[in-house]
Design a protein around this nucleic acid. Sequence first.
DNA 1: TCATCTCTCACATTTGAATCGA
DNA 2: ATCGATTCAAATGTGAGAGATG
Length: 429
Amino acid sequence: MRAQRRGSRPPFASLCSCSRNLPRVVLGAKTTRNSWSFAADVTVTPCLFDTRSTEVTHALEEEEGNLPYVLLTDPPSSVPTSHPSRLTTERPNFTTDTILESQAISMASNECTSTLSSPVEGSPAKPPVTPSSILEETFGHSPATSQMAPASDSLKGPGTSLISISDSPPWVSTLPSSTFGCPDSGKDFPTVLTFKGVTVTLENNSIWKQFCECGTEMILTKQGRRMFPYCRYRLSGLDPDRMYSLVLSIVPSGQYRYRWNTSKWEAHGPAEHQSQGLIRAFPHHYSPCLGSEWMSCLVSFYKLKLTNYFQDQEGHMILHSMHRYIPRLHIIPVLDGEAPTPDKPVVMGPESITFTFPQTEFMAVTTYQNFRITQLKINHNPFAKGFREDGNNPRLNRILPLPVKMETQTEVLKLAEPSEQQEEVMDLR
DNA sequence: TCATCTCTCACATTTGAATCGA
DNA sequence: ATCGATTCAAATGTGAGAGATG
């Protein structure tokens, strides 16, 4: 399903269910009274979203066989500011990890001072560092993903109200394929983005920046592999009394398939299936929450897993290997009046906004291509601690010619400052 | 046919939560 | 109720080998 935007009519998204126990998000726009164009559809965790009308349900059932997963509706003329009673029975544990997360914050926050103007709106604001706790899982998690159209097609366009703050940042969109990896590390990436009074901080920007400089790679496996680093945000400027759903989508950021050639990525043919569009989205496991709750915690999408298994039913993000992607955070106000159920969607209307941090772009791979990325992962990821041997990992020695090894290890040691390692270790807790 | 590229799987290791007993 | 030891599931990258591709 490819997005087709017409006129100035804004796009909206609905989050709803399908018949395979995996509900979906649909990003689309109403083009005429009875016609919709779809930017994307995504499988999402059930019971997380408020719902609206069922206007085009039947049309989509016909299209998709027995998959009544699409529910789209007109946008509300206004979004109520009051909030319904709690929509879930379990709540985040806001106390368990306060200390560890606060420590991580205090270190990470040092990286948040380079507030740059976003393409949409500059923001000098730096969110106050307040005691926080990471959002720990207490909900039953049901996995989620799905197919969507390419972001370049679906989430841009005149009149759109689905705003991508950094939809086409020049330092990303204009990067030649061979320069993927942000070698121009002297160019700062925005750590804080602000739009419509909502400020989003990429809390673990320092680690992202290190990976970006080498060209971030993320492993895809059939059973799903977590991202490292993962996306961790701090939010401010939300209405404290309003319910919001946070959804992370991962959209293609290039039109090509790539290959690793000795020391750099090169375009190698057109992207696979991008004409049909494949975007994934992953709702945060605590969605929906009050704005006050989102703002009091770090929002970490550490549960997100990446896979290249297209029959995946576990709800992982399905990506193409050797393709470039970039995560995007969607902040979706939840409408009042109706409790969320798996068969009803929440409207992603004019007040929904999307934030994209260009430094989080990555290459999806099944095997690491860039040795520097491997070393960064080993040095930063606690689960890979077994491969750390102070630069004397015999396995790495085996696969590396000596001169290269000496050089890269020096670089890696330089990149992996102790404080950064410590930050990321604590980040995982 | 062959070389290269890409992917899959078993493996060793670490982490952290859960469990159990003192 | 607390603490330490143990167990186990889930996480990591490695490397061999299979399959796909040109």
